[in-house]
Amino acid sequence: MQDPFTLLELPHTFDLEACVLRGALLKGSLRWHPDRFALASAVEREVAEDHMAALNQAHEKLSDPLHRAESLLALHGHALGNGTDQTSSPMFLMEMMEMKEEAEAALASGDISQLKKISAALRANEHQRIHAITLAFRDWETAGRPDAQLDQLRGLVTEAVYVRRTIEGMRPAPSY
């Protein structure tokens, strides 16, 4: 399976504007859209459909800065870990836990305005982290992509993923 950058014929860089991504998807669609295979054989049509679906997925993935960062890290052998997190500090985890506790308490007491406040704070937090990640990846690429910085980049992305999962977890649906 090709990586999403290669699929969309894009350079392996973090610095991809939305319009560049759209352009790449459009270019791929012109070639692979199932409509162009209306008269082709069933096999060819299926291949085109699969490829078009892969292009859409790749576009969706790269359009999200966190997923884009994860894809780049994975390409450099630093995929985000499965299982216990060895990178985040206990202090950060405690902060996330406190945020979740506050959200849980607000949800239990039906305090919607407090819930909105927490949610807004988390979104601002995520936004700041994505900004920091953007700058860090830019520095890393400018410096010639040194391996020595990959652990630190992964740490930044890991923490941002926590914040995002915490926001998602605030929707009142049990994850069980």
């Binding site: 985890l93 979740k100 993923v161 977890g169």
Partner: peptide, 9 residues
């Protein structure tokens, strides 16, 4: 401890 991919803490 935490697991980032699911956000568990």
């Amino acid at each position: 401890v935490g697991a980032p991919e699911c956000g568990d803490v």
